[in-house]
Amino acid sequence: METKDIYREIINEHNLHPSHHGEISNPTYEMDGVNPSCGDKIKLQFKVDDSGIIEDAVFSGSGCAVSQASCDIMLDLVIGKSREESERITEAFMRMIKGEASDEELEILEEAEALADIAHMPARVKCAVLGWRTMEKIFKENRQ
């Protein structure tokens, strides 16, 4: 997809009207993610129940449209899923961004698959993975 089309068809909507932007009280986990190359900063907050299901999750902070949209799409995907599933999705996303994802992996990425062509803009890869890396870190640092 052409860059303008990626923006038009996917990024703009999630950037301008995100579903999961905001803050929640008493999150189970909370973490900041920073993109050092542009200073973009996001905060992820997760509510995870005892069985490891992500009940709710939000992001806040500022950043470019790519990082904001990618984060919103990510949360769309993982809310309601278990942390193991979300880790699998993250792995698939990272592989997709490197252009290495299998068809099955692309399938579980659903709407996030539209960000595949970000791989053609190396400078923007860091923006696209900011939220994902932060979520990955949350679960890595909080092993059950």
Binding site: K4, Y7, C38, G63, C64, A65, V66, A123, R124
Partner: peptide, 9 residues
């Protein structure tokens, strides 16, 4: 518009 989006566009 974030400058990175401006330059990408």
């Amino acid at each position: 518009c974030h400058p990175h989006d401006v330059s990408s566009i």
